[in-house]
């Protein structure tokens, strides 16, 4: 277990995954009017499970591998004629949700950092 894992617990990996997912959802929104584009997303739960259980190697590589392994194509509610599977309502909702959860993870991290800082200062 690396020092980083001990300090931040699950939240360090979670933040990295949230950031990756932000890029994925941004890609889907960017390609909302590209014919034939297939929207992709990750199953966050399984990605986080994989990123936290695998311990060998560097943490960044683990997160990247976890993202690749749990990635899938979005099933559109209503397929469009040009083969594009981006549904803006879905993508925007998930994007907003992901942003809020990113902030949540960030405040968990903040709490951990504050705790440790206080312990180090001995106040």
């Amino acid at each position: 277990m690396s020092l980083e894992d001990g300090l931040f617990g699950i939240h360090g990996k979670a933040l990295a995954l949230r950031s990756q997912r932000l890029s994925l959802l941004a890609s889907n929104i960017a390609n909302a009017s590209t014919p034939g584009y297939k929207a992709r997303d990750i199953d966050f739960e399984s990605a986080l499970k994989e990123a936290t259980t695998r311990q060998q190697g560097s943490s960044i590589a683990d997160v990247g591998k976890a993202v690749d392994d749990s990635m899938g194509y979005r099933v559109p509610l209503q397929p469009s004629l040009d083969g594009n599977t981006v549904e803006l309502s879905t993508e925007q909702t998930l994007f907003a949700e992901n942003a809020v959860k990113y902030r949540t993870t960030l405040s968990f991290l903040e709490g951990r950092i504050n705790t440790i800082t206080r312990a180090l200062k001995g106040e």
Binding site: L15, L22, L88, L109, I113
Partner: peptide, 21 residues
């Protein structure tokens, strides 16, 4: 507009991240 919104959200998240701690 959607892309502008994505950009704004990403920007504020990044700024919050660099202010951490």
């Amino acid at each position: 507009q959607n892309n502008v919104q994505v950009l704004n959200t990403a920007k504020s998240l990044m700024l919050e991240t660099i202010r951490i701690g």
